[in-house]
Design a protein around this nucleic acid. Structure first.
Lengths: 133, 133
DNA sequence: CAGCATCCGAGGTGATACTG
DNA sequence: CAGTATCACCTCGGATGCTG
């Protein structure tokens, strides 16, 4: 009865990220990308200016932050508010949609952070047994 | 009172993904990477063999799937079970830790899939106003 | 079926310099 | 401050061919 057969039960979405051509893949990549995830996570706690964000997301370059913010803004996840003052002041904040996404993202991030002890141990075990090869 | 000041309230982790050198960044990238996310999502519904996985994660190449699985296995998120039959049969399944991560990942994926209508509309608006430039 | 080795091109990424 | 522009690198990732 399911036309796609992608999930065990009910709950069908018109978009399927498992399908190669689905536009949701692109958005998922913006959201989960190296800098996208951290940017959304940082903005969850409140709006930030460009350079504040840059400091918070340790290691990001101007270029990549700019690029990341553009993609997220275009997807409707981040709102850009420029005040025509001098010096210029631009605030970035999450849209309601962005908050929903960021919430789930942070849940994932915290889960990973909280699991790192186990992950590190798993790596040691893995490298021990197979690393010698 | 917070030593790091990274979160508004309580709940401190020894690992901070916002710090450039934190090992959790690497794992987060394995998990959220283009193929990592889809692989974990696919395995959430049950163990799969290599080529089943390959079909499920539409568009992934052998090389990338293999590479992705190795990274996830090393991080202790995926379990690889090879049966010494002929032809060989290898099953991949999530570890308990992998399930926790995948659960959150799927929540995020579903959130994105369910938001795509809004995202697509946001893009149109964005391109309309700024695209002409 | 389940992979690994190799090659090769596109594009992601960072450093630097410059603008309003 | 808040970016854009340019360049050079170098990794990601696909295609191909081969093994057990």
């Amino acid at each position: 009865m399911t036309t796609t057969g992608r999930r065990s039960e009910g709950q069908e979405f018109p978009f399927d990220v498992f399908a190669r051509a689905c536009p949701s893949r692109g958005t998922l990549e913006h959201v989960t990308g190296r800098w996208g995830a951290l940017t959304l996570g940082a903005l969850y706690e409140g709006s930030l200016r460009f350079n504040e964000l840059r400091r918070r997301v340790d290691g990001v370059s101007e270029k990549m932050l700019s690029q990341t913010l553009h993609a997220l803004e275009r997807d409707g996840l981040v709102l850009r508010e420029a005040q025509p003052t001098n010096p210029p002041r631009v605030d970035y904040e999450l849209t309601p949609l962005g908050r929903e996404v960021a919430e789930r993202l942070l849940s994932l991030i915290h889960c990973v952070e909280g699991s790192m002890d186990a992950v590190l141990r798993a790596r040691e075990r893995y490298d021990e047994t197979r690393g010698a090869r």
